[in-house]
């Protein structure tokens, strides 16, 4: 168990680097909104979801619009329903308490790293949890640094820091590619996500693209036609 936790922590270090930078930007924004560091830390530990926290900080003008904020967080984080569901094989044969305990520290990044490791049979809940510990630590560190230093990173675009996330998730996506049977589902996912993002505000594109791509895989099944695909 401890060994897999450590393996998870190490495997998440490359992703954690960009999480730290992302966090420092959030810290800067929070400081500008006069959100105290203790409030920010409370958000980091209890919510632990990057994009939702960005939107909350953005909406943070007293008196706080609590209902709107909660609704926004719900919509942004709906993708966690799918992310949680896709972790089913990793959590096979674990107790309910184990599941409830580990799921809090599941973010996009350690989920993606774990699913990639799962393809090689190396993923365990300890690995997932270790990744979560690594990310939450860096996330807190990054946001606190940004909050303290203010505008330390004045021009993040020049260093492509805005692209770090896209690059790391692209690399992770490639490691999940299962060969020919994924081509059509992936094409559908990409097109639907792009179209949704263009027409519907918010993060709905993650859900619509993910679901429609996976549905494509359900209904277009090359195996059924005798075309054998290796996994």
């Amino acid at each position: 168990m401890t060994q897999s936790v450590r393996a998870g922590m190490i495997a998440n270090l490359p992703v954690a680097a960009s999480v730290g930078v992302y966090g420092s930007v959030l810290g800067v924004l929070a400081a500008q909104k006069s959100i105290s560091w203790s409030t920010l830390l409370m958000m980091n530990l209890s919510i632990f979801a990057g994009s939702a926290q960005f939107v909350m900080v953005d909406m943070w003008t007293p008196p706080l619009p609590i209902v709107e904020m909660t609704a926004a967080v719900l919509m942004i984080n709906l993708r966690y329903l799918l992310i949680g569901a896709s972790l089913k094989p990793v959590f096979k044969n674990t107790s309910i308490w184990h599941k409830l305990g580990v799921m809090h520290l599941v973010a996009d990044e350690n989920w993606a790293v774990t699913m990639a490791a799962h393809r090689n049979g190396k993923a365990t809940t300890g690995f997932l949890f270790g990744g979560g510990i690594c990310l939450v630590t860096i996330w807190c560190f990054g946001t606190m640094l940004g909050h303290t230093l203010g505008n330390a990173v004045t021009n993040p675009e020049a260093y492509a820091l805005d692209f770090a996330f896209i690059a790391v998730f692209t690399a992770l996506a490639v490691s999940l590619f299962r060969g020919a049977k994924d081509i059509l589902p992936w094409l559908v996912a990409a097109i639907v996500a792009a179209v949704t993002e263009h027409w519907i505000p918010g993060k709905w594109y993650v859900l619509s693209g993910g679901v429609s791509g996976a549905l494509m895989a359900v209904f277009h099944n090359p195996m059924r036609k005798g075309l054998k695909n290796d996994d």
């Binding site: 896709s86 996506a173 999940l176 992936w186 996912a189 792009a194 859900l207």
Partner: peptide, 25 residues
């Protein structure tokens, strides 16, 4: 069908997450 759905899901979610960002760049 459920198994095929959830097996394909991680890849399609991840791709949906990045595609708009790539195109916006």
């Amino acid at each position: 069908g459920f198994k095929r759905f959830f097996d394909a899901l991680p890849g399609t979610i991840l791709l949906s997450l990045v595609t708009p960002g790539i195109l916006a760049s």
